[in-house]
Design a protein around this nucleic acid. Structure first.
Length: 723
RNA sequence: GGGCGGUUAGCUCAGUUGGUUAGAGCGUUACAUUGACAUUGUAGAGGUCACAGGUUCAAUUCCUGUACCGCCCACCA
């Protein structure tokens, strides 16, 4: 027995060298795995943002996936786990811009596009090293030879190819539509980047002028200078007779031509039952304008300032609102003013109130039908007519993408039902620049620039989720027909947090379906969020962050992994409790000491010689086999939290507390047959426990494996799973 | 407005198609302990499984409703 077992287990000494041992073995790459593997098992790492450092959410996700990958590898699969990072366009640029503003008092426009992109890229590069080393500290068995970054050359090419193919299929179009404009970030954002905040606000009821027959209610009087109609419900007895009539009024210095229209979308019960239609500054009004062919004058600009003529010109919207109310009071037009609670749309990133504005943007059409050349998705035949929405629906409905948690399936379908076209252009500089060039009215779309200097490339970049959506196959070399793509796609397993279900999961299904006719993954297990002890989300502003690296330094990566996995049913949120982690550090030491006991008491035994087992020992082995069956079943059904708890309980309270205690008299006794039988049994219990424990606690188990006098393989990571 | 989830020991949570006495970790109490274990063991205390109905031989588990927490979605101006 080696002397190191005389001291307590020291994770910080062991972990770095064990990780190096694995990396040097090449076993993270399925090509180097021993034996003959037929079936593949692929996972792509949800790429962490290059802006960030590892947080407990990553730590949990890494633990989960690594346990699954290690289990499958031991099952003899060609296990591949692909690492990567995400440029996170908006988040990263915003972060760097903020730093530059703080340190140099300069804006991005002072620096210019090229310089800003250079600075952001530099920041991203530094950040990348940090987070990747942190992922290594978790013990993640990622194949680093396949590392991908959303902005590297290959992924860039994948993105422009994807764009071009969808453009050619007519699924990407340029259109003037109402967008969510973030006046602070000076960019469009998608519906998913909006947070609805409940606020109290005033609902004003008034008429445009004394002569106007109908009073309207609004929370945004300042927008009314952009009104072109009043909409009422067609069945509303109060207003029915006015439908079709037109009026000229002067509202707050602005001449308006108002048409009364009947529209089903109007609620009779709300306010006065009449809606002032401001087509350019409200989504619902824009749609009404579509139906009734109305003018759409813009009265607010990108800086949330008024551009209407008259007294409101150049004022901020909130100031203008007060001015309009004052004017209404002066004119005696204000009929009512009441407090209501309202959900205000704000930008997730900047916190700014979203200003709906009409803008010329790039969109993905989710409803348009197209001919899919090749499809492996059940219910969608190759060569048939389909739509992106149908791809998303059928992929999950058919079970091709298995979402075992019913509740998330409901959320998913609900989201698809309400899905509208996806705005993919962003007015920032860091990211994938849209591969479209303009020359006058001509538009050219390709992966490379057209000949001739008169062509000007689109300034906008793509929504970061556009590239993330390609992730399962862009990381495997697409659009080239690589061996990797053929071998490892569709991937086997994906485990994202529930908050990312619509943002990412559904869009991966969309992209994979369109470009490959495949689903991106076979099973998607949605997990919960790691929260602090009080149940609050970790956030920088709350200052409640826990650095996983500090936890690892203190208790070891194995302990952190176990602490995050045991007893947390997948899908539920986790309240992080340090004392739980501490418990698993004790457990690592327990395993260490069990090893010491077994090795001390089996010195000199030749385990390759068969022995006759006592009845008691046969029973112990039988019990162990029953446990193996159970744990294997739990693993196959992704019930890791149960598998982990069972092996923990078995090792500590069965092996250590009972079996080892009962063995002492046998080992010290003079029945040599009984003793030899027990020695063999103990050794089997130890080695089997190490195997079962390995997916959860890879470091300590591998370290012990390395010191065993007799073992079937040189490394535990590739040792066959017991049966 | 629509949808989803939670409520089990002092705390954090399991409880895998309904089946003995509802479990674990931490905490707590008593005892033991130069012990494979500086990170140990044994034993114990602690529960109306949120509440009210229903289905069933049997409900923490299935159904209905209520309360309180939490989350997501949404173009009520």
């Amino acid at each position: 027995m080696q002397d190191k077992f005389l001291k307590p287990y020291n994770s910080s000494e062991v972990e770095p060298s064990i990780y190096k041992l694995w990396e040097n073995s090449g076993y993270f790459n399925p090509a180097n795995l021993p034996g003959e593997q037929k079936e593949t098992f692929t996972v792509v790492l949800p790429p962490p943002n290059v802006t960030g450092v590892l947080h407990l959410g990553h730590a949990y996700e890494d633990s989960l996936q690594d346990a699954v990958i290690r289990y499958q590898r031991m099952r003899g699969k060609r296990a591949l786990w692909v690492p990567g990072t995400d440029s996170a366009a908006i988040a990263t640029q915003a972060r760097v811009e903020k730093n530059i503003q703080k340190d140099e008092s300069k804006s991005r426009h002072d620096l210019g596009r090229a310089e800003l992109v250079r600075r952001v890229s530099e920041f991203a590069k530094n950040s990348e090293d940090t987070i990747l080393n942190q992922v290594r500290r978790m013990g993640a068995s990622l194949d680093w030879s396949r590392y991908a970054y959303t902005l590297d050359e290959k992924r860039n090419f994948a993105v422009s190819t994807a764009f071009k193919r969808m453009y050619d299929a007519g699924l990407i179009y340029r259109g003037n539509r109402i967008v969510n404009w973030d006046p602070k970030g000076q960019t469009t954002i998608s519906d998913d980047e909006i947070i609805h905040e409940e606020r109290t606000t005033k609902l004003y009821t008034f008429k445009y002028s004394k002569e106007f027959p109908i009073a309207i209610s609004t929370t945004r009087p300042e927008t009314k200078v952009g009104d072109t109609a009043v909409a009422v419900h067609p069945d509303d007895e109060r207003y029915k007779n006015f439908i079709g009539k037109e009026f000229d009024v002067v509202f707050c210095d602005v001449p308006l031509h108002i048409k009364i229209v009947g529209d089903d979308s109007v609620e009779k019960e709300f306010g006065t039952g009449a809606l002032g239609v401001t087509p350019a500054h409200s989504q619902i009004d824009w749609d009404i304008a579509d139906r009734h062919n109305l003018e759409r004058p813009q009265v607010i600009n990108e800086y949330a300032k008024m551009i209407a003529p008259g007294r409101l010109k150049d004022k901020k919207v909130l100031d203008a609102r007060e001015d309009v109310v004052t004017w209404l009071k002066e004119q005696g037009l204000l009929e009512q003013e009441e407090e209501i609670t309202q959900n205000v749309s704000t930008s997730e990133r900047t916190g700014a109130v979203i200003e709906p504005l009409p803008k010329l943007q790039w969109w993905v059409d989710v409803n348009k039908t197209f001919t899919i050349p090749h499809s492996e998705i059940p219910g969608i035949a190759s060569g048939s007519q389909t739509s992106l929405k149908e791809i998303m629906r059928k992929s999950v409905e058919s079970g091709a993408v298995d979402m075992p948690q019913e509740r998330f399936k409901k959320t998913y379908f609900h989201w698809i039902d309400n899905l509208r076209d996806w705005c993919i252009s962003r007015q920032i500089w860091f990211g994938h620049r849209i591969p479209v060039w303009y020359k006058g009215d001509e538009i050219y779309c390709d992966t490379i620039a057209p000949e001739g200097s008169e062509w000007k490339q689109e300034e906008d970049v793509l929504d970061t989720w556009f590239s993330s959506a390609l992730w399962t196959f862009s990381t495997l070399g697409w659009p080239e027909k690589t061996k990797d793509l053929e071998t490892f796609h569709p991937t086997s397993f994906m485990s994202p947090a529930y908050e990312i279900l619509p943002l990412w999961v559904s869009r991966m299904i969309l992209m994979s379906g369109f470009h490959l006719g495949q689903v991106p993954f076979k099973t998607v297990m949605i997990h919960g969020l790691v929260r602090d002890k009080q149940g609050c989300k970790f956030s920088k502003s709350l200052g409640n962050g826990v650095d996983p690296i500090e936890v690892i330094d203190k208790y070891g990566a194995d302990a952190l992994r176990m602490g995050l996995l045991v007893g947390t049913a997948i899908g539920n949120d986790i309240k992080f409790d340090e004392s739980k982690i501490k418990g698993y550090k004790h457990f690592a030491n327990k395993v260490w000491n069990i090893t010491r006991f077994v090795l001390e008491n089996t010195e000199g035994v030749d385990f390759s010689q068969p022995v006759t087992s006592t009845h008691k020992d046969q029973e112990l082995i039988k019990n162990l086999e029953a446990l193996i069956t159970e744990i294997t079943e739990d693993f196959d059904n992704y019930r890791l939290y149960l598998a982990a708890e069972k092996i923990y309980h078995y090792v500590w309270h069965e092996v250590a507390d009972k079996i080892l205690e009962e063995s002492k008299p046998i080992l010290n006794g003079n029945n040599s047959d009984e003793k030899l039988s027990r020695q063999h049994t103990l050794y089997t219990l130890l080695t089997t426990s190490l195997k079962l424990l390995h997916p959860f606690m890879p470091f300590v188990t591998e370290e012990i494996w390395q010191s065993l006098p007799e073992k079937e393989t040189d490394m535990l990571i590739v040792t066959e799973w017991p049966s």
